[in-house]
């Protein structure tokens, strides 16, 4: 194992770096897109169910199919990392738009009402009151989306761009377990670290949740 690591550390590091980028860039873009989309599902209640259904359908498209189909749709090269980024962004939006909507809907009506009665206008109320109060729910969704993306990137290896997933394909092709083990360990570790980072962020930005009884 140590021989494998010392001979291939450059390949492994490149794969890891690519994996981080491919997984996390879509999380950021998806989160930014999901905020307004999720908000619309709350602002216009009739939009909520179509939104939830659309998200459900999008998330259920098999990732490999999406990776292969996107180049046709976008006109990108089949080996372009952009395919992976776009596909994972779609999954992230599908997960988070619903989470944002559910988070905003979970805000106690009395809290929204008292904010309005104190003279908040709609946008400022959203930014100062509704989003912060919805944050525990939204961040829980962000954890799922992040971990899910980290695991999905590997599938990209089947079309040639897959971060740590390339270690799996190589291992299979060569009947050689060591890259597979390294790939698994690293992607699990990466998922764990990212998850912990979000939990840490959550503790930092929502200190008040520690005192909520029976709440998230």
């Amino acid at each position: 194992m140590s021989t494998y690591l010392s001979n291939n550390w450059e390949t492994i590091l490149t794969a890891l770096r690519q994996h981080v980028w491919l997984a996390l860039v879509p999380v950021v873009i998806g989160f930014v897109l999901a905020l307004p989309i999720g908000y619309l599902g709350v602002r216009f209640p009739w939009l909520y169910h179509p939104l939830v259904n659309t998200c459900g359908v999008l998330y259920s498209i098999p990732s490999l199919a999406l990776f292969v189909f996107l180049p046709v749709l976008l006109g990108t090269k089949i080996l372009s990392p952009l395919n992976i980024v776009v596909a994972l962004t779609i999954y992230t939006v599908a997960l988070l738009a619903r989470t944002v909507a559910d988070g905003l809907r979970s805000v106690d009506a009395l809290v929204v009402q008292s904010a309005t009665a104190m003279g908040y206008r709609r946008l400022r109320r959203l930014i100062d009151v509704e989003l912060p109060v919805a944050l525990p729910v939204i961040l829980a969704g962000l954890r799922v989306a992040t971990v899910s993306n980290i695991s999905l990137v590997s599938v990209g290896a089947l079309i040639g761009v897959g971060g740590l997933g390339q270690l799996f394909t190589r291992g299979f092709q060569l009947f050689y377990t060591q890259p597979i083990i390294v790939g698994i360990v690293l992607s699990v570790a990466l998922a764990g670290i990212c998850d912990l980072a979000i939990v840490g962020l959550q503790r930092l930005v929502t200190p008040w949740t520690r005192y909520q009884r029976g709440a998230a």
């Binding site: 106690d108 009395l110 809290v111 009402q113 008292s114 904010a115 309005t116 009665a117 104190m118 003279g119 908040y120 206008r121 009151v129 912060p132 109060v133 944050l135 929502t206 008040w208 909520q212």
Partner: peptide, 22 residues
Amino acid sequence: DDALLRRKIGYVIQHAGLFPHR
């Protein structure tokens, strides 16, 4: 203007409706 009007009127509700995050 509703918002400006409401800032001049104090409002107290049942269960207080406090902001949990503040």
